[in-house]
């Protein structure tokens, strides 16, 4: 019995370790945190941002395992939704950048100056696709 508990404990710990390490590796590769510190000029606070990610991951785990309910007004969902969206947007942008899409595209189509307009195509496409999905697509 004790061995069983120990074994389950070990397996859970190992799984969590692997997922946590993978999550951080993903964030590092896409460079979201460096980008945020660069934008806000807070390089010296970067270790605090690390803790924010760690606590966020723990809070998310707690939420998905325990189903807590806060009974807050729906308005609270707006800033949280916005923050979630910005984060995913930065991940998507980081991924686009890691895959070298734009430099190659700009060279091919010969439009170095108008590349901002192409970025806007992707940005507006993301917004439109997301809105379309939540407002119509899910009801189909």
């Amino acid at each position: 019995m004790t061995i069983n508990i120990l074994l389950v404990f070990l397996v859970g710990l190992a799984g969590g370790l692997a997922v946590g390490a993978g999550f951080v590796a993903f964030l590092v590769v896409l460079g979201v945190i460096p980008r945020l510190t660069q934008l806000t000029k807070t390089m010296h606070l970067v270790h605090l941002y690390e803790w924010s990610v760690v606590f966020g991951a723990i809070a998310g785990t707690f939420g998905s395992l325990q189903d807590p309910i806060f009974s807050a007004p729906g308005v609270i969902a707006i800033p949280i939704g916005l923050a979630a969206g910005i984060f995913v947007g930065m991940l998507a942008a980081g991924l686009t950048e890691a895959l070298n899409v734009f430099p190659i595209l700009a060279k091919r189509v010969r439009i170095e100056e108008r590349i901002v307009i192409l970025i806007m195509a992707i940005v507006i496409g993301k917004i439109a696709g997301s809105l379309f999905q939540w407002m119509y697509f899910v009801d189909l």
């Binding site: 947007g89 970025i119 809105l131």
Partner: peptide, 13 residues
Amino acid sequence: PYSFGLGLGMILF
């Protein structure tokens, strides 16, 4: 808000 945040995040990046 999530959908608009998506675009905002990309622009920020």
